[in-house]
């Protein structure tokens, strides 16, 4: 990641001066951030700080009131989740965004169904591709034909992650990916995050779990009341600094970069 930053290559994602208003409420106010290949940027803040809103703008689920987004240096106008996907942006939502009545392959391919030459749904290929994609993440994945409502939280999370990986995300947004998971499943998601990072995928990680943040992230940005109140390399801050930013919106008075790199 440092290589990419130093060679001056354009960032994977650059968001400039993003604003989002709902009536008189300013959910996001002039936030800028960027993301380089192979790095994990933690997006932190308490509920309602605007972090989910910012990420929804990047994933095309919501349109910014103003501001620009560049993907690989080129301007990107995300009108819908479909557009965002065309730029290689995939999102794993906190709510998992699964259709409960449908089975795993139908969910994995939702909105991007595989079709035969005659335009019919290619159930056979979707099942075999889904089986392979899901087994890669969890070798014990069974019940592929069951409606996903009957699956465990971990299995549902696996489907949501498999969906991003299968379609070869370049940019991954993970919105509290471990909120609904048990310890072993959380560890699996952490392993996976590091693996994806090594493959050069850029990841925005929204999380409340400080342990996760310090284990996985290269950089963090903290949002408070819709503003970006601080962006740091993870070595320059500690847990108390981040909590201070999240709660007060400012760093402790005696703060100086803690990392040994400066």
């Amino acid at each position: 990641m440092l290589d990419a930053m130093q060679t001056g290559a354009p960032p994977l994602v650059q968001m400039d001066n993003i604003y989002k208003q709902f009536g008189g409420i300013h959910a996001v106010e002039g936030v800028s951030t960027d993301l380089y290949p192979g790095e994990v940027v933690g997006v932190l803040g308490h509920n309602g700080a605007g972090k989910s809103c910012l990420m929804r703008i990047l994933s095309g689920a919501m349109r910014a009131s103003s501001g620009q987004i560049h993907v690989n240096g080129a301007p990107a106008d995300m009108k819908s989740p479909h557009d965002a996907r065309a730029f290689g942006i995939e999102t794993i939502y906190q709510t998992l965004a699964l259709a409960n009545h449908l089975d795993a392959p139908a969910n994995l391919f939702m909105g991007r169904e595989l079709r035969t030459r005659f335009g019919n749904l290619d159930e056979k290929r979707m099942l075999s591709e889904a089986t392979e994609a899901l087994r890669q993440l969890n070798p014990n994945f069974k019940n592929l034909r069951e409606p996903v409502a009957r699956l465990s939280g971990g299995q549902r999370q696996v489907i949501a992650i498999a969906r991003a990986i299968y379609f070869q995300a370049k940019i991954l947004i993970m919105d509290e990916p471990t909120a609904a998971l048990g310890p072993s499943e959380t560890a699996m998601v952490a392993d996976l995050t590091l693996k994806l990072k090594q493959e050069g995928i850029g990841i925005f990680l929204i999380s409340h779990d400080m342990a996760d943040v310090f284990e996985l992230c290269d950089r963090v940005m903290v949002m408070n009341k819709g503003r970006n109140v601080g962006a740091f390399r993870i070595e320059d801050v500690n847990k108390d600094d981040i909590l201070s930013l999240i709660i007060k919106g400012t760093l402790p008075d005696d703060w100086e970069p803690r990392g040994n790199s400066r």
């Binding site: 819908s80 709510t95 409960n100 449908l102 939702m110 335009g119």
Partner: peptide, 25 residues
């Protein structure tokens, strides 16, 4: 059962928000 539109009809009814976020029109 066999066409994309049918699958989308089920997706929308099952979870409209999920369908929208997945790129279903």
């Amino acid at each position: 059962q066999k066409r994309q539109i049918g699958r989308h009809i089920f997706s929308v009814g099952s979870n409209e928000e999920a369908a929208r976020l997945s790129g279903v029109n």
